[in-house]
Write a protein that binds this DNA or RNA. Sequence first.
DNA 1: GCCGTTTTCGGCCCGACTGTTTTCAGTCG
Length: 569
Amino acid sequence: MNNQEIAKIFHEIAVLLEIEDVAFKPQAYEKAAMGLEALSEDVEKIYKRGGIKELEELPGVGKGIAEKIIEYLKTGKIKEYQQLKKKTPVDIEELTAVEGIGPKTISILYKVLSIKNLKDLERAARAGKIRRLENFGEKSEQNILESIEFLKRSKGRFLLGEILPEVREIYKKLKNLKEVKKISLAGSLRRMKETIGDIDFLVVSRQPEKVMNFFISLPGVIKIWGKGATKTSVRMRQGYDMDIRVVAGKSFGSALQYFTGSKEHNIATRKLAMEKGFKLNEYGIKTEEEVYKKIGLPYIEPELRENTGELEAGLRGKLPKIIGYQDICGDLHCHSHWGADKNKAIKQIENFVRLAREMNYEYVGISDHTKFLAIEHGLDEKQLLEQKKFIDKLNQKLKIENCKLKILCGCEANIMADGSIDINDKTLAKLDYVIAGVHSQFKMNREKMTERIIRAMRNPNVDIISHLTGRIIQQRDEYEIDFDKILKAAKETGTILEINAYPVRLDLKDSNIRKAKEAGVKMVINTDSHQSEQMRFMEYGISQARRGWAEKKDIINCWSAEKMLGMLK
DNA sequence: GCCGTTTTCGGCCCGACTGTTTTCAGTCG
């Protein structure tokens, strides 16, 4: 998409202008870049429809930047960018990724030592050349080397589902300290972003020194820096960094609001505060509710704080009542592996049932792969009916035991290249519900893939489309689809879109969830569990739904079994 | 370069920390 490419250029222009010491323009380009990144529609489409006028309506885009967007669309380049780049021909993306290196440092490194990229930088640092620069020293050189090491090792961000369980253990330890009066997670982890950069803890304590000492002696800490009275940072062996901040109880609310972010949300809230005639900082307010109230806003859930319209919605009293973490009545996507080993599968189903009861679910749905996926021992028609029979019996047994849980029998069938389903309609019709998903031939062109999925939706037995875009976070891109067209077809056919809670999938992503909700398309949050403990991934699906502004009415497994089944095809 | 319920000029989020200096610029969140 053009948006991401242009956004990247604008980010770089911002850095290059800062190198040139130009005032205020860098922020303008930065803002425009962020606006473009958040945009779900291709700017080319917008330009073709509404010309420069509609481009100028985009956030952060005025006449000058609109003209640059058009220049890029027409010629594939932006002249001013190329001129700036000629003056400072360095790999900005690589160098700014190094912690502690910004525009001014890049400029000096290039002018004095001709450093253009990460390789040059590492070589110069190893040769002891950095420390001889003015305003640099041994410490700065050491920090650069360590940052490069960290970059090489961690490759950036961690999956929410991989990091949250570990962090919760640490959180518990901190909370149990008698010196800790109050504690909260902050940052992107509190906002439940799908990937997390680093971990932030916010603590109220009268003895910060003791808390800091405990923090730096946690098992797994391999590096400590910035140890002060209010803040300390550590690096963990697993490769991520953690910050802890201690504040006074009377400032907990303002600090929590501030350190939860996002940065964009904070900038916007501070601007709002200024319009009301006062300054917002991280001190002096006890609760977050009061912080928002002061600016004339209702409380905004952390998952909504991305400056994607939540402030405007709050001002107009139009914030959604997003779904809660306790609102789920069941999970419809659990694999028993019936085709691989029936006896094991029976045990597996019993485990799903046990966990579903523990999680207070009203229903749990077994949906094994079907025959096209031989590698997953997918079930054929006969096996599906056999499994259905078994589940019917198990339901009767549960009923006799006076257990309210209902087991549903579905499947996750394959959408073939032509959009047909690999199981016959007669069999599909006998199941409680049918999920269908794309599991092969991901590299189709956009039109074909869109047609393929829409044809599957038109099958009167297909109730749910699983992991619609097929992405695997940090591993595989989404396949190309026309999402708007698919939404229209989903609405027409009454097909439900899945929000897959599996940590590497989280598919639909937040912006797509929001679009689906706006289009009136219903969704279901499923874990895609391949073992019973994975049913606990539900939390990540819920957070994703919350980040997509979804409400209970949008998510069919927030509903009773009766209502939910009643709305399927 | 963008923006506007003090709107076409004059502002632009704000504070902590670092490493280098000896008073502060740069970076970060």
